[in-house]
Amino acid sequence: MDILVCIKNVPDTSAEEIEIADDGTDIVRDDLVYTVNEWDNYAVEEAIRIRDRVGGSVSVVTVGSEEDEEALRREIAMGADAGFLLSDPAFEGSDGAGIASILEAFVRKHPVDLVLTGAQADDEAGQVGGMLAARLHLPFASLVNRIDIREDRLTVEREVDGGNVEVVDIALPCVLSIQTGINEPRYVGIRGIRKAAAVHIPVLGAAELEIDPAEVGRRGARVLLESLFVPAQGEGAVMLEGSLGQQVAQLAAALKTQGVIR
């Protein structure tokens, strides 16, 4: 089975105090460490496991710039067979629909049996997989946390509210968006990354993909980012102050007042 996984290189922000850049439409990215979007990593691991079971190939693709090549190499180090970087000045500023149409153009040139995406990435939209499927007129299932192969079909499980599971029969080829926890992604060692450094990664632009530059990027975007802002604190928490010992004593006292007795 030939599998394509769409991935995104994202800044790891959870433990960082994000700053908003001066023009108000981006975050300050200079000091942030980039990683492969968490959900995508599970998708690549799943693709590799399927290939190892039934044969075929795993390709990874991203829409981005030169810096994002590193993310493709990381997934090649993990076990993907090939990586493709879709990059062109005309792609910059694409909205979700633009990204989906660039990926669509790529899939039309490199048809596969199965396309995987992460369930969502750093913009928390969860849109590219479903849009890509619709553009390709392929069946789609989101939030997949199990895949079983049955000849020309799959039985997949979708994780829905409350951890309940929808068992779904879906025809191939199809597009699935992968939920975390579907597997345990393997560790990528420094040696693997070094080996992947030599792999040639083709870069494809609007011309190669036969994309009309007016349809994508900032020009084609119908959804525009106006501004980023830090949400109002609302009431917000009472932030404890003082030495660690003092803060902890205050916290313990507060918890006891709330009835935590022991």
Binding site: P11, T13, S14, E17, I18, I20, I27, D122, D123, E124, A125, R222, V223, L224, L225, E226, S227, L228, F229, V230, P231
Partner: peptide
């Protein structure tokens, strides 16, 4: 208005 980056930042988007 939507949340991005794990809810640390909100984004105002406009759409046609």
């Amino acid at each position: 208005v939507r949340q991005v980056f794990g809810g640390q930042v909100n984004a105002r988007v406009s759409a046609d």
